[in-house]
Design a protein around this nucleic acid. Structure first.
Lengths: 151, 151
DNA sequence: ATTGAAAGGAAATTTTG
DNA sequence: CAAAATTTCCTTTCAAT
């Protein structure tokens, strides 16, 4: 699918606020609500728009601690990766898990209540997969954190 | 604000799909659409629900490369942090920027088209702030990546 | 091929019991 | 908290560019 300038402007708006009326979006991109509606539907069908979700406030939910785990492993069997992938998917505190280039093998991003909850998560994780070298780094300050992709 | 079990179930649904009719949500949590509507409104006012946004497909937008930058700095003046924070906010490819504990000082998560685009981003960044020690690690495989917080 | 206008239907919001 | 009344918005259709 090829996106034109107007499509991108619509996406930019939707990335900020997916709850705006079509009328309002239309006026911002100078199009009728109808044209906007059809463009959005096409982009949804094409999969450019993956989902519309609510973003929650982690603090308000008592998840004040954001943590990154840098993982090095000696075990590179496909079976290990499968178990690791499954473990990360099963643990809801884990928001992101990535296989990386460079000297660290895997990176995990998680959100927990506090250091104690982090330790519980860590224990649950290593009970499911063998991790030789894990180092945790906690987020002291969030300078930026967005789901909006550059357009 | 205190959330009960039903509030959490509503939030869990909204984190997955914020476009469902109140009727549907109501039937899933066995509540009238009206009760659901009021609970959602309260949670929006309380800031538990921060926003409703569209999540876009990075691949479809030609942003196939996800990269993490681990940054160490020797300059710890508040002025430096201010410039750094502003730079990360101004560069749309940067999705997340965090001040960390431990041996690495800052962590940046960015999304770009390819290695060439990464280099362009890197150049733009170091033109704005003095970075003594930067190491980039690219994402080879996304095992998990979600905006849904644990409830 | 893509748009805008208008009609129709569905869902959200307000009001009331 | 639920049910009905009201309003707003989404969706479809159709004509026009």
């Amino acid at each position: 699918m090829t996106l034109d300038e107007i499509d991108r402007r619509i996406l930019a708006i939707l990335q900020q606020d997916a709850g705006l009326p079509l009328e309002e979006i239309g006026s911002r991109v100078s199009l009728s609500r109808n044209a906007v509606w059809r463009r959005i539907r096409l982009m949804e069908e094409a999969g450019v728009i993956r989902a519309r979700v609510a973003l929650l406030d982690a603090e308000a939910l008592g998840l004040g601690l954001s943590v990154f785990l840098m993982i090095r492993t000696s075990d590179h069997r496909p079976d290990w990766l499968e178990r690791f992938a499954r473990a990360t998917r099963d643990l809801p505190e884990i928001l992101g898990a990535y296989r990386m280039t460079g000297d660290l093998d895997y990176l995990i991003h998680a959100r927990v209540a506090d250091v104690k909850a982090y330790d519980a998560l860590y224990q649950r994780l290593i009970r499911r997969v063998d991790l030789s070298d894990v180092s945790a780094s906690f987020v002291m300050e969030e300078l930026k954190d967005t789901t909006a992709l550059p357009l």
